[in-house]
Amino acid sequence: MENSVDTLLPTLDDGIKCSAITSTDGLVLAHTGSGATLDEDFLGAMGAALFAFGSKSIANLVGGKMKDIVVEGEQGFVKVTILNDKLLMVTVAEPLKLES
């Protein structure tokens, strides 16, 4: 079961630092790439909190359901994708490098 959930996660070589599949209340079911620098529970909790704020903002300000959240920083991105009404995927990625 755990292996099949793992296959949903993106591979780490495409500039992706870490990713996790988490429930909407922040319980991590599968994760890749976290280690000494990043705790997977923290990743899951962050994802769930972002999801909660995002879905509330969309529901109250725009209407309808939220599709995904992208938070952009100087050193990378955090993306929260909604898989179904109980599961989220949180991905932390490096900044885009444009090839010249």
Partner: peptide, 22 residues
């Protein structure tokens, strides 16, 4: 104003239906 999520680990959460996440 708040955000509840469906509780997944209900045993650990006193059998609550939902739990605060943010």
């Amino acid at each position: 104003i708040g955000s509840d999520a469906k509780a997944i680990e209900r045993n650990a959460l006193h059998n609550k239906e939902s739990t605060t996440v943010s």
